[in-house]
Design a protein around this nucleic acid. Sequence first.
DNA 1: AATCAACTTGACCAGACGGTCAAGTTGATT
DNA 2: AATCAACTTGACCGTCTGGTCAAGTTGATT
Lengths: 199, 199
Amino acid sequence: MSRQLTQRGEERKAQLVAYAIEAFARDGYHSTSVADIVDGVGVGKGVFYWYFSSKEELFVEILRTSQRDMRRRQQREIHGIEDPLERIDLGIRAAVHWLAENNDLRRLIEFARNEATFATAIQKGQKVLVEDARSHLEEALAQGRIPARDPEALALAMLAVANQLTHVYIAERGEDPDMVADLVADFCRGGLGLALDHS
Amino acid sequence: MSRQLTQRGEERKAQLVAYAIEAFARDGYHSTSVADIVDGVGVGKGVFYWYFSSKEELFVEILRTSQRDMRRRQQREIHGIEDPLERIDLGIRAAVHWLAENNDLRRLIEFARNEATFATAIQKGQKVLVEDARSHLEEALAQGRIPARDPEALALAMLAVANQLTHVYIAERGEDPDMVADLVADFCRGGLGLALDHS
DNA sequence: AATCAACTTGACCAGACGGTCAAGTTGATT
DNA sequence: AATCAACTTGACCGTCTGGTCAAGTTGATT
């Protein structure tokens, strides 16, 4: 879309995005109509199409900014850390915490992964995360600290564990994010071929 | 639904299910209308509602039989194996192979996981798989062969790795299922706290 | 006060959807 | 040949959908 927005416009748009995220996560993308969204915000239907050219475009925008936000958090947490394995550990924890704090967005990303229309948008964002992890893994590999195995596969596996355990333990059961981060980090350390830390 | 079906009826129903699986996996559940399904099979719309009371019911039936089928395969593969860790290893491999051979069903299960309407049906089936894995893990734990950690979390993590790597490596890239099974089994063995087998 | 881009309204549209049903066909059983 | 449950047809229905648009409002700028 891309329009020249006043402050009022920016606020309205943010309002629509916020309500849409909530509704999509609660009722699902398909079950949430544009009418639902504008009714929820309390505006006319035309407002929606002033800010977005379609329901699909809105959703893609939500996905893009979400993935960007998660990566930003990960980068912030590992900034300045020398040890590649520590970067991975902190990256995993950052991911779990972001997923825990943004459960709505986690659901939307998970949904989008399995929808042909949005799969490519998701893959683009995921590729970035996997590349990040891959570079740390390769550094650790070069240092001879983990056994040689396809770094991409390892990165994907770690992402999957983080997603799944966050889903079940935090979203479904409301467990403590720190405890889940430990769980995920533990499993992944082992999966990478490192001895378990029993300290 | 549950009707008294003749052989002709059973065949027609199987025809509808087969086409629906294909269409759901290709175009998505929401984008596939009942009209699409009956057109694809080449019958009138009433036929669909003779065999199923709704589109939703058909989908749930597909999910149930899929999950049952996957478990059956797993049980068959590990039947008679004494060593709990070997049962886990073989169970992982059976899962990967089943997912690889039933890519359409893998997509549908993955989709259903994130849809409120079908999440409970999925959880019921997943619970069974997790219980199976949990019992093997507890046996290994009692034998002191793996470090003590929540067996359920371990089971969930293994399932997630199997799903994710199968998705990326087999469904997206067409890699060899045996190679992927190795990848998954390796990562999981490490995740369980076992040393890597470098033989 | 005039102007104009930004913003808002809500009736309206064409098409698709899940589901119904009265009517007709098939084929095994008696 | 008569019967009847199993099966099939496709027109039809009410509802909802994403999206349009002519008309009107707001508020900063000149």
